[in-house]
């Protein structure tokens, strides 16, 4: 994993937050720079006018894994940026959780003259031949969260590894630096799972060596499944002091169990992603914390890159190396959650 090799500093909470709130403004500025020169007669942006005169509309599409809060928020962010460009047609397509469907959709989009494809690949390898095919046709592919083994235009992901490390640090502090922790994990075979698990385990070892990870079990990203799994873990470890769910749904499942068994307040529970329900749970004093990423913003970043690529200034194969953007994040706890504005909640 490339993150191991790099030694990036973990930014302070305040600066992260500043980045989160300033980014839309910065981006607006950037887009003014790109499209800001206006025609004196019509007042329309010059670039948009040039393309409109050609009569060419630019097609872009996002192939999601399956309907879920995260891709839904990405799509909203993407749409927000693209619809202002006036010459871009954007469509959201559903991969139905099946690689073969995603591959077929890729083929269709390539044939349909799509300029940019946003892709949340179900599998890093299985979509690689499709990405290679898109590249041959000069189509820019931007992956979201899950990278592909075939290099492509850009990859925008939540900061899985460093975020999970930071979760381990804050979680250990909340536990007083000692005790037993369980991980409610995703099914194997997905890079996100490995990045988050490795980050958490290594973060715990680095910051709180006295804390023991006693269980690491699969709960299928699912709230209900997480309840069952945690009940089993608690039977074996009644003195469990903390739970880390690698997504918020599983962490909220752990909250359900803690409530039911009267363990709320005794158990430190962390999630990951930062969806609306998780933030509300933190404010209600139930969930201890989560790694919050502004997923709308992630979509906006991807769409901004796409716009630059598709306006013909840069071609997809002009990159010697794939662009990579790790999203800024915030470890949301009772103390910090209030900093996340209502319009940043997804």
């Amino acid at each position: 994993m490339t993150q191991h090799d790099q030694d990036a500093p973990v930014p302070g909470r305040r600066s992260v937050l500043k980045a989160l709130t300033l980014a839309p403004a910065a981006m607006a500025g950037a887009s003014v720079g790109l499209f800001g020169s206006r025609d004196a007669e019509t007042g329309r942006p010059v670039l948009a006018r040039a393309m409109a005169q050609d009569g060419e509309r630019i097609k872009m599409a996002f192939i999601q894994w399956m309907p879920h809060t995260v891709p839904n928020a990405w799509s909203q962010g993407i749409d927000e940026v693209l619809k202002t460009q006036a010459v871009i047609d954007y469509a959201l397509l559903d991969g139905q959780g099946k690689v073969e469907v995603q591959v077929s959709l890729m083929d269709t989009l390539i044939n349909d003259g799509t300029k940019v494809i946003f892709l949340q690949p179900i599998d890093s390898v299985a979509l690689a031949p499709s990405i290679a095919k898109a590249k041959r046709e000069g189509i820019a592919v931007i992956t979201l969260n899950i990278d592909a083994t075939e290099p492509h235009a850009a990859h925008v992901e939540m900061n899985h590894y460093y975020g999970a490390m930071e979760i381990a640090r804050v979680m250990g502090e909340k536990m007083g630096g000692k005790g037993k922790v369980a991980i409610l994990n995703a099914p194997p075979g997905i890079t996100i799972r490995d990045q988050r698990t490795n980050g958490f385990v290594e973060g715990m070892a680095a910051h709180h060596p006295a804390i023991e990870i006693v269980a690491d079990q699969v709960a299928d990203w699912d709230r209900k499944k997480a309840q069952d799994v945690l009940n089993t873990i608690l039977a074996a470890n009644p003195d469990l002091g903390g739970v880390y769910g690698v997504n918020d749904s599983m962490a909220l499942g752990a909250v359900d169990v803690a409530k039911e068994k009267g363990l709320l307040g005794q158990m430190v529970i962390f999630g990951n992603d930062g969806e609306k329900d998780a933030l509300a749970s933190i404010e209600a004093g139930e969930l201890t914390g989560t790694q919050y990423t502004d997923v709308y913003q992630q979509g906006r970043f991807a769409a901004s890159a796409a716009t630059v690529l598709a306006t013909g200034l840069v071609s997809a194969d002009a990159f010697g190396q794939q662009g990579r953007l790790l999203m800024p994040y915030l470890i949301a706890t009772k103390e910090t959650v209030g900093q996340i504005q209502p319009n940043q909640r997804w």
């Binding site: 139905q96 959780g97 099946k98 690689v99 073969e100 591959v103 179900i122 599998d123 390898v125 299985a126 690689a128 031949p129 099914p187 075979g189």
Partner: peptide
């Protein structure tokens, strides 16, 4: 076609 296989291949 995929150059790999997954556990969920061909579901449904």
């Amino acid at each position: 076609r995929l150059t790999t296989s997954t556990e969920a291949l061909g579901e449904g």
